[in-house]
Design a binder for these strands. Structure first.
Lengths: 340, 340
DNA sequence: CCGATCCAGTCATACGTATTACCAACGGTG
DNA sequence: CACCGTTGGTAATACGTATGACTGGATCGG
């Protein structure tokens, strides 16, 4: 049966050695036990037959899968593609593989007791939006991404507070004082932290006033929240949004009220994803180092699996100034423009 | 060691039966061989101990993983989240699990010979952009999504030709005759088919003229391609884009030339992703049933794994008319409207 | 020239499961 | 009572790998 996948025993037969020798050579632990000549012969035979070790057998023997689960809230944002790439790079360097599990997902987790690739796992790397999902894997080492560093699980975070402070400073320098926050109505650390940091930074501006409206993390949700802020008396001259998609909603609200961005209203986003440059005007936002989040998170998880206690990490974002922010318009309510 | 994971033998001991009995009961093949009372006791013990079968052992024994690989080009588009959800639903119904492998990915595939969860697999479901990647898994049953139905591999496709024809008909009804195609410079069936169908449909319009400019599948690439079309003599009055992101680029090109969308220029997209409603004006596009693509693809793959020969499937898209299309402006060059 | 070392490997085994072949007890039949 | 079919289970085994225990022969020190 030439079609059947070759086993280590087939390689052994082809090389004229025993199966154990094959395993030793291919496992790299042969120095001093197997002669270089034999090792070469084994490798040649393995190559010739196209041998690939049976992962199930290895896992069974070793009791470990060298596989890590990456839980991401959805396959939606390019953001998570970068997180995956960073994590995969580090994982591969250490001989680990990654299984991606979108969560929450429309289909929910496959609860089939039969095939559940996401259960054959040594550790978990979970994005903040999958916090509660980690509870489904009790006893499995986990590292949380962009989550509360005060929690029981090790974390690798973005410095969202720093990012919000940078946005506030940028707006303050342009002259804005009344800042509205278009917030995601999601009760999770990363969003709470954004709100608290922004509020503090805005209030620290001379004469600064902070107001907040929350909605679902969608374009439509943000539009409604932004309208709430714009329609209030004494409306803000700048809207800081928790996310680039929400900024798109803010754009829509501005247009609905006949306000030009950035002439009448400045808008900022967060993340710097594809939308940021697809919009008109292009969005001033904070770029989060997604790939590094994945890489550092995986490094922390590997340390944890090795018995260590990874220190919390906080990755700074970078303010990216584009066309959606400008000085505030002259204040019409107080007749601010001289001579108007 | 209470912390160790219980095995079927532990369950057997707890229930006072043999390991084989546990396996028979939990495998559901006990009718007529094991008394209902014993079966109940086994199930109770398994529950009490929190027994979960060891997947590696099962795979080793059965020679099958009941796991399918889903290859998608990137974790970026919400589109693929829907594909995954659809596929996962069908897979779970049949006791299969899904492993997601982003491909191509910045990190490339994890070539580590040690952990490669994407190698412990029974079949592959591959998006069109991962065509060549499937070649890396010779001998593994595969179904291609949105790919050339004439190829050697079974396919489940979108009726992209129908979608393009619908767009052309819509534009034709509005009065457009000169249509530009902002095409993705990717040599793959789905894009070739889009181009061919659009060209044919436009040319079938009375006086219809089709022109094409290709660029990378990005906002910037589309902007450049669109400018090429707009700057030519006798420019198109409508731009049909291969993708919603490319439509965003067309918007930018229009703005750069001082053209209003849709007053001076109609623009259409393809896919109907998040961008379509984030843009201003909202995009007329073709909605592709992504979840159904995943579901039907998985069904086809399961049929293939079962020894069948799945018939090709073609899923129709749906024209979604929003604010980016309108009748063409009066033709200044020829003064074309009757009576003008 | 003989015992100790070392080299280059091989043998045997265990990981946890699914399944085939087997078996004991029992009730019914002729 | 000898025979047989059925009921309700058990024993044994194989999947492919990694690894600790072991071994035949060569080398070396004394």
């Amino acid at each position: 049966m030439p079609g059947a996948r070759p086993t280590s025993r087939d390689v052994a037969r082809a090389a004229g050695v025993s199966q154990s020798t094959v395993s030793l050579v291919l496992g790299g632990k042969w120095e001093g036990r197997i002669s270089p000549a034999t090792a070469g012969a084994v490798r040649a035979a393995a190559d010739r037959l196209g041998y690939r070790p049976n992962l199930a057998a290895r896992s069974l023997r070793l009791g470990t899968t060298r596989t890590v689960l990456l839980m991401i809230p959805t396959l939606s944002a390019p953001f998570f593609g970068a997180v995956h790439a960073g994590a995969a790079r580090v994982a591969a360097e250490h001989g680990f593989g990654i299984v991606v599990l979108p969560w929450p997902d429309d289909a929910g987790p496959a609860r089939s007791p039969f095939a559940a690739p996401h259960e054959a796992i040594d550790g978990i790397l979970a994005s903040s939006l999958a916090v509660e999902a980690v509870a489904r894997f009790p006893g499995t080492p986990a590292v949380m991404l962009d989550s509360d560093p005060a929690g029981p699980t090790p974390t690798v975070d973005f410095d969202v507070a720093g990012g919000m402070a940078a946005l506030a400073a940028h707006l303050g320098a342009l002259g804005h004082r009344r800042v509205g926050h278009v917030a995601a109505a999601i009760d999770q650390w990363t969003f709470r932290a954004r709100g608290e940091a922004l509020a503090a930074a805005v209030r620290a501006l001379p004469g600064g006033s902070y107001r907040r409206a929350a909605g679902p993390l969608t374009v439509g949700g943000a539009r409604a929240a932004a309208l709430g802020l714009l329609d209030a008396p004494d409306p803000p001259t700048a809207l800081v949004c928790d996310d680039d998609a929400m900024a798109a909603g803010a754009y829509k609200a501005a247009r609905a009220r006949g306000l030009a961005v950035p002439g009448d209203l400045s808008v900022t986003g967060f993340d710097d994803d594809q939308l940021a440059t697809a919009l008109e005007p292009e969005l001033t936002t904070v770029r989060l180092p997604a790939a590094e989040l994945g890489a550092r998170g995986m490094a922390a998880l590997l340390e944890l699996l090795g018995g260590g206690a990874p220190a919390p990490v906080s990755l700074p974002g970078r303010l990216v100034v584009r066309g959606s922010t400008a000085p505030p318009p002259h204040d019409r309510r107080t007749g601010g423009i001289p001579g108007a």
